[in-house]
Amino acid sequence: MDAMASETTSHTEVPGEAHGGGTLPQLDSSTYPSQLLWLVITFGALYLLLSKVLLPKIANAIEVRQSRIAADLAQAEQLNDDARKASEAYDAALAHARTKANSIAQENRAQVLSELDAEQAKVDADLAARLAKAEKQIASTREKAMGEVEGIASQLVEDVVSELTGSKPSSTAIKSAISAAGR
């Protein structure tokens, strides 16, 4: 760079301070101090203003937006997950309730059926007992009646025989005769 600078200055010294005409104003070294000074001032001021004030502000705005977008996306994901979980919980609860309802219905049905069976059995037993009792009663009545029939028959036989023969037959003979006839 030094070489470069010395080259340009050595060139400009030859044509001197000629304005206009064919020489390049860029090689007029008398304007260099002013240009350099004002470049340093303006560039330095711009650098300070940008790096200390304006760029941080813009960076902040961008960052705020990006973090906001990220936060919003995270929130949306969270809400979506929650909703999905709620939906799954709802489905599970629904399925659970359905199976529970089924089992309750089945249980109820079984209980009713068993109650009915028990009632039926009870009624059946009751009926059977009554029937047996009635049969027994009938049998005893019949026996009693048969016994009375036998007494009446032997009395009748005794009366008929004594009337016909004039002699009284023995009661044992009468009894055996009746039972033989009853058969």
């Binding site: 977008i69 996306l73 949306a76 994901e77 979506n80 909703a83 999905r84 939906s87």
Partner: peptide, 17 residues
């Protein structure tokens, strides 16, 4: 229905991100 919608929303969130 909701299941499909949830995965759609997830896909959209991923795409946005």
């Amino acid at each position: 229905g909701p299941d499909k919608r949830f995965s759609e929303i997830s896909a959209r969130i991923a795409a946005e991100r």
